[in-house]
Amino acid sequence: MSTRTRTSTPSAAAEGTTAAGGVATEGSAPLFVASLGVRWRDLDAFNHVNNANYLTYLEEARLQWLQQVRDWFSEESMPVLAASELQYRQPIAWPASLHVELRCARLGTSSMTLAHRIVDADDPSRLYCDGHVVMVWMNPATGKPVPLPAAIREAGAVVAATT
Rank of each mutant, 00 (worst) to 15 (best):
residue 103 R to G: 01
residue 144 K to C: 11
residue 66 L to E: 03
residue 82 A to D: 02
residue 143 G to K: 05
residue 30 P to D: 07
residue 133 V to H: 02
residue 55 L to I: 13
residue 102 L to R: 01
residue 109 T to R: 13
residue 116 H to A: 12
residue 120 D to A: 10
residue 138 M to C: 11
residue 62 R to N: 08
residue 55 L to Y: 06
residue 37 G to Q: 13
residue 119 V to L: 07
residue 90 Q to N: 11
residue 58 L to C: 08
residue 42 D to T: 06
residue 72 W to C: 04
residue 116 H to F: 15
residue 71 D to A: 14
residue 111 S to N: 10
residue 35 S to H: 15
residue 99 H to F: 06
residue 91 P to C: 12
residue 70 R to G: 05
residue 116 H to R: 09
residue 54 Y to R: 06
residue 59 E to Y: 10
residue 52 A to F: 00
residue 90 Q to F: 08
residue 76 E to W: 08
residue 76 E to L: 13
residue 149 P to K: 05
residue 127 L to E: 02
residue 143 G to V: 09
residue 90 Q to S: 15
residue 52 A to N: 12
residue 137 W to F: 12
residue 92 I to M: 14
residue 62 R to Q: 10
residue 109 T to N: 15
residue 129 C to F: 02
residue 148 L to S: 00
residue 121 A to T: 04
residue 97 S to D: 14
residue 112 M to W: 12
residue 122 D to E: 15
residue 41 R to K: 14
residue 54 Y to W: 07
residue 40 W to I: 11
residue 148 L to K: 01
residue 82 A to W: 04
residue 136 V to S: 01
residue 142 T to G: 07
residue 98 L to T: 01
residue 122 D to I: 01
residue 128 Y to S: 07
residue 100 V to Y: 06
residue 48 H to T: 12
residue 147 P to S: 10
residue 64 Q to R: 13
residue 75 E to V: 12
residue 78 M to H: 08
residue 60 E to T: 14
residue 51 N to K: 07
residue 71 D to Q: 13
residue 65 W to L: 12
residue 131 G to I: 11
residue 127 L to W: 01
residue 108 G to H: 07
residue 146 V to T: 10
residue 144 K to W: 11
residue 137 W to T: 04
residue 124 P to V: 04
residue 44 D to H: 11
residue 124 P to W: 01
residue 65 W to F: 15
residue 51 N to C: 08
residue 122 D to P: 00
residue 73 F to G: 01
residue 88 Y to P: 05
residue 145 P to E: 06
residue 56 T to P: 03
residue 47 N to D: 13
residue 89 R to W: 09
residue 119 V to A: 05
residue 106 R to L: 05
residue 96 A to G: 01
residue 102 L to P: 06
residue 63 L to E: 10
residue 88 Y to M: 09
residue 82 A to L: 09
residue 70 R to C: 06
residue 98 L to D: 03
residue 97 S to Q: 15
residue 147 P to G: 05
residue 126 R to F: 03
residue 124 P to D: 03
residue 79 P to S: 04
residue 95 P to I: 06
residue 99 H to V: 06
residue 41 R to L: 13
residue 121 A to F: 08
residue 33 V to W: 00
residue 80 V to T: 07
residue 128 Y to H: 14
residue 78 M to P: 01
residue 33 V to K: 02
residue 107 L to E: 08
residue 97 S to R: 15
residue 66 L to H: 07
residue 64 Q to V: 06
residue 148 L to C: 05
residue 103 R to E: 06
residue 106 R to N: 09
residue 124 P to T: 05
residue 147 P to R: 02
residue 147 P to F: 11
residue 53 N to M: 12
